[in-house]
Amino acid sequence: MRARLETLADRWETQPPGWWRTSTIPVSIQHGDLHDGNVAVDADGRARFFDFGDSTVAHPFSTMDLPLMLARRAGVDQAGTARLEDAYLDAFTDLAPRAELRAELHGVIELAPLLRAHNWLRALTPDEPGGTVRWDPVAADGWGRPIEHWLGQLGSSPRT
Results as ranks from 00 to 15, higher is better:
90 D>M: 09
90 D>T: 10
91 A>T: 15
92 F>E: 07
92 F>A: 13
93 T>S: 09
94 D>I: 05
94 D>T: 15
94 D>P: 06
95 L>R: 10
95 L>Q: 06
95 L>I: 01
95 L>W: 00
96 A>R: 03
96 A>E: 04
96 A>G: 03
97 P>M: 04
98 R>Q: 07
99 A>S: 11
99 A>H: 14
99 A>Q: 14
100 E>M: 03
100 E>K: 14
100 E>W: 13
100 E>R: 15
100 E>A: 11
101 L>G: 12
101 L>T: 08
102 R>I: 00
103 A>I: 04
104 E>Y: 00
105 L>F: 01
106 H>C: 13
108 V>E: 03
108 V>K: 00
108 V>D: 00
109 I>A: 09
110 E>I: 01
110 E>Q: 03
111 L>R: 11
112 A>I: 03
112 A>F: 02
112 A>N: 10
113 P>L: 12
113 P>K: 12
113 P>Y: 04
114 L>C: 03
114 L>F: 10
114 L>N: 00
115 L>F: 12
115 L>P: 01
116 R>M: 13
116 R>D: 07
117 A>M: 04
117 A>H: 06
119 N>G: 15
120 W>T: 12
121 L>C: 09
121 L>M: 15
121 L>Q: 13
121 L>N: 09
121 L>K: 09
122 R>T: 02
123 A>V: 06
123 A>G: 01
123 A>D: 03
124 L>A: 07
125 T>K: 02
125 T>G: 08
125 T>N: 01
126 P>R: 02
126 P>C: 01
127 D>T: 13
127 D>P: 04
127 D>V: 14
128 E>G: 14
128 E>R: 15
129 P>S: 12
129 P>G: 07
129 P>Q: 13
129 P>V: 12
129 P>C: 07
129 P>Y: 06
130 G>E: 06
130 G>D: 10
130 G>S: 09
130 G>N: 10
130 G>T: 10
131 G>R: 11
131 G>Y: 05
131 G>C: 07
131 G>A: 09
132 T>Q: 14
133 V>I: 15
133 V>G: 05
